[in-house]
Design a protein around this nucleic acid. Sequence first.
DNA 1: GGGCCCGCAGGG
DNA 2: CCCTGCGGGCCC
Length: 282
Amino acid sequence: MKAAAPPVGELPGCPPGTLFEGRRALSEAGVHRPLQAGIAGTALGGAVSVVLSGGYEDDQDSGHQILYTGEGGRDPRTGAQTAHQLLTRGNLALARSHLLGQPVRVVRRVAGATYRYDGLFLVTACWHEVGRSGYRIWRFLLESEAALESEGTTAATAAPERHATTRLRRLSRHGAQVKAWHDHTCQLCGLRLLTPAGPYAEAAHIRPLGQPHGGPDTPENLLCLCPNCHVQFDLGGVGVAPDLTLLGRPGALRQARAHHVDPAQLAYHRTHIYSEEPGPMA
DNA sequence: GGGCCCGCAGGG
DNA sequence: CCCTGCGGGCCC
């Protein structure tokens, strides 16, 4: 008999705002089981809850948006980063939540040993960067589900489009042009996906638009991709080397005469989105 | 199923 | 500030 998967989402009798005295109480209520770790969950099932206790200087918390730093690689005595953070344990769990579009319970330490359950958040971005220490750290953007919903129902919102997954994808003004240059052929795998209404392709930003990445909406920052390659590219399973050969699979980036791809954006994707780590089910 | 390793505690 | 801690995921 396998242990029951930890419950995801809202817990009955525990609405946002519920207070807990100490980690023990949090644990016994099932809101956040571990007594010390900040991330709860499994490598396959994803993260189910996180605790923000202000331990990371780099974390930013603006209420509905939280920039969360992954775990590991720190000296337990000094807290200094002394090794790369790996996509394992809690970091992998959060990356799985991103992939699965699975909500994460967020708990904040509000004073002393008092913790407050603050509702469900989605992992809307997942990337890595090299910090001042010279070591790689993983970062996760958590956004309040409630805030995302009200954003979606606000008629005034412009370009952002959220699909079934939590990947934030925005429409490009130059998408049609880039697709035309490539005749709707995927630049990664060469597929030209046919439908009765015509060939289908997607315009994929190399360096994602908007925070935290801040990529430009220009043709030089776009690729013409099939839906499968688009997903894998956005989630870091495939990258493009400086010589335009592919990373993570055989092949090379297909080019069109009129379409200049900015090497700097490909470099950004390599150093922040693409990851060589094979993942739990490779 | 058992040990091992780990962490945004908590108190002294 | 330092050290003991405890449950849980995960690998053997």
